[in-house]
């Protein structure tokens, strides 16, 4: 190997190194900005309160020894009948209760604000003056939003686990197929379920990011994203539209419960993950196309 070649390699790897540090630094500062915001903390607080509310309500209703809802048709969110026997089920109930609205709404707020918020605050052009590049800024924003998805889900799960452990007994877990698994495996499944729930939000996050590149008003982007979320949820309830239901990002959300079957029923879980990937690819590339070609005026 000649000297010149070695030098070439060194020269080529130098900027790349710088670039990686830059990306990481940008990501870290974005994370810091996002999670230090009062708005973000308030959203996480609301999410953490949901399991507390559910747990206390179930505890009060069953404190006289009665079963929940008289053992009838089992209304309410999924798994709620099992909470009294095993606090771990509060994790699943809380996730099932927050997934349809609270979690995606929080994600919609963060995703919708990501680009449009900078734009309306007049800080976007300064971000772009720094040698980060638009594509990388977009990727960093998306990564931040996904991190928020994961953190928000884990906040719900951990809050539920704490409340469940405090108010209800823990122990061997009965899967919904009727078989038993140990508490350790139950915890593992709870973690898997939290990850799947977080992954279920990828689609909304990508949609929010795309909407965020369309407008320069943060509020408008958030409202549009949450509005789209509600619209899709309503359309998903209309039986006449069943032909297009499988393409709604929210259609397979509750499939995370399939992880509690024994053996696990993967069909819908994989469909859900595939669908989220499709949304990420489609709206991610649309956001890239829009943001890369956009005139930044603010």
């Amino acid at each position: 190997m000649s000297r010149a070649e070695v030098d070439d390699v060194r020269v080529a790897s130098g900027p790349r190194e710088v670039r990686r540090i830059w990306t990481f630094g940008l990501f870290r500062s974005e994370l810091g900005i996002t999670f230090r915001r009062w708005r973000t903390l308030a959203l996480l607080g609301v999410l953490a309160a949901v399991p507390i509310l559910v747990g206390v309500a179930v505890k009060i209703e069953t404190s006289d020894g009665s079963t929940l809802g008289g053992g009838g048709e089992g209304g309410g969110p999924a798994f709620i009948a099992q909470i009294t026997n095993n606090g771990l089920f509060l994790v699943f109930t809380a996730l099932a209760a927050t997934l349809p609205f609270f979690l995606p709404m929080a994600v919609g707020v963060v995703a919708g604000d990501s680009i449009a918020g900078e734009s309306s605050a007049g800080t976007l052009r300064y971000l772009l003056v720094a040698p980060a590049g638009r594509t990388r800024l977009l990727l960093v924003k998306y990564a931040t939003t996904m991190t928020f998805c994961l953190v928000a889900t884990l906040v719900v799960a951990l809050s539920a686990l704490t409340v469940g452990a405090l108010l209800f007994p823990l122990g061997e877990v009965t899967t919904i197929s009727g078989t038993r698994i140990g508490f350790g495996e139950g915890l593992l499944r709870a973690l898997l379920i939290a990850l799947v729930v977080a992954a279920s939000l990828i689609g909304v996050a990508a949609l929010g990011l795309f909407v965020s590149t369309l407008t320069s008003s943060g509020i408008a982007a958030m409202a549009t994203t949450v509005g789209l979320l509600i619209t899709i949820q309503i359309l998903d309830q209309i039986p006449q539209l069943h032909a297009i239901h499988p393409y709604f990002f929210s259609h397979y959300w509750l499939s995370f419960a399939d992880l509690m079957r024994e053996p696990v029923y993967w069909d819908e879980l994989l469909k859900n993950l595939g669908l989220q990937g499709l949304y990420a690819a489609l709206f991610g590339s649309a956001a890239w196309a829009r943001f890369g070609a956009k005139d930044i005026t603010a």
Partner: peptide
Amino acid sequence: LSVLDDAAEYSLIHNGDDVWAYDSKSNE
């Protein structure tokens, strides 16, 4: 035999002399 419902399952299990049915939705 298990019937897979949304976030719930109904299982009918025949093992030897016992027939069990378990409805996870109502926990009965």
